[in-house]
């Protein structure tokens, strides 16, 4: 059963990355109550950012990461203030359409700027592996996992212990009461949205050295992230992290054990959602930011 152990290791490492990809979406929804359908495109932009940093500036994706995070944060803030803020009080359908529209625009800008060609940014450590007994660990995946873990830990620590972090949780849990505390909800929304964008960009930078980069990669990433966030209970970060691992493991198991399973991995996300939501409609931890 060496293969089983190998599969679990690979799935766990992927799960960390999935978690980072989804946490941003979860934060955005928990606080701002908008599912940001452009989230996948932020991941895509982060991947391109890291790719160009590597190929043009010869800067390793990990070194470029802090800069990309800051850029992502600023971009998200501007996008929120300039565009998204206008639909906060609008019906949910309008919000969905708007963020979908942003996604399409970003995708096509990427195609125009960088063409539809596939890119690949692979620093040395991305491919090398360490063999431990019968199993191997791909360094690129391990690093992605560690970075994802660090960022998520930093986020949850910030949310739990800092003044602004507490304010963000307050707005998510009770908007009016938060105002009574002296918290400016508009600023907190922009902050949460900007952070969710920054997290998306960060996961893109990390994923850049694991998979192929194209302007169209965002959509399948968004699908997985939405599946994970719904599974984990919208707005709950702990739930999101747990369901990220569940999805990664389920996908890997299906790819291995089901005949022609590799063709079904994308479908796993949705099968799992439908299954769990039938049983427990509020997701695994169905409340706002249970950290």
């Amino acid at each position: 059963m060496t293969n089983l152990l190998q599969l679990l290791i690979d799935a766990l490492l992927m799960g960390g990355l999935y978690a980072l990809m989804s946490v941003g979406l979860s934060l955005g929804f928990g606080v701002v109550r908008i599912i940001n359908f452009a989230h996948g495109e932020f991941v895509m932009l982060g991947a391109y950012g890291a790719y160009w940093a590597l190929t043009l500036l010869h800067v390793d994706p990990l070194l470029a990461l802090p800069f990309l995070i800051v850029l992502g944060y600023l971009g998200g803030w501007l996008l929120f203030r300039g565009v998204v803020a206008w639909v906060l009080k609008a019906p949910a359908l309008n919000q969905i359409l708007l963020t979908f529209g942003i996604a399409l625009v970003l995708q096509h800008i990427a195609v125009v700027l960088w063409t539809g060609d596939v890119r690949s940014a692979m620093p040395e450590y991305a491919l090398s592996t360490t063999i431990i007994g019968d199993v191997f660990v791909v360094h690129g995946r391990l690093i992605a996992f560690l970075v994802a873990g660090t960022l998520i830990a930093a986020l949850t620590t910030w949310l739990r212990y800092s003044e602004t972090g507490r304010a963000v949780r307050a707005v998510a849990q009770n908007h009016d009461a938060a105002i009574l505390m002296g918290i400016n909800p508009g600023r907190i929304y922009a902050l949460a949205f900007a952070m969710s964008t920054a997290l998306g960009i960060a996961s893109g930078a990390i994923v850049s050295f694991l998979i192929n980069i194209t302007p169209f990669m965002g959509f399948s990433i968004l699908l997985k992230a939405v599946a994970i966030v719904i599974l984990g209970g919208l707005g709950s970060i702990a739930g999101t992290v747990i369901s990220a691992f569940i999805l990664a493991i389920a996908e890997t198991m299906v790819a291995y054990y089901v005949p022609e399973g590799a063709g079904w991995t994308e479908g796993v996300a949705f099968a799992v959602i439908v299954g769990i939501l039938l049983v427990r409609p509020r997701g695994i931890i169905g409340s706002a930011l249970a950290t």
Binding site: D10, V207, S220, T252, A255, G261, A262
Partner: peptide, 20 residues
């Protein structure tokens, strides 16, 4: 004989089966 999905990000499970 192993099928992979076009555009998939992860072929490791398939490769493990091949290895076996």
């Amino acid at each position: 004989e192993e099928l992979i999905r076009e555009g998939a990000p992860d072929f490791l499970p398939t490769l493990l089966k091949v290895r076996s």
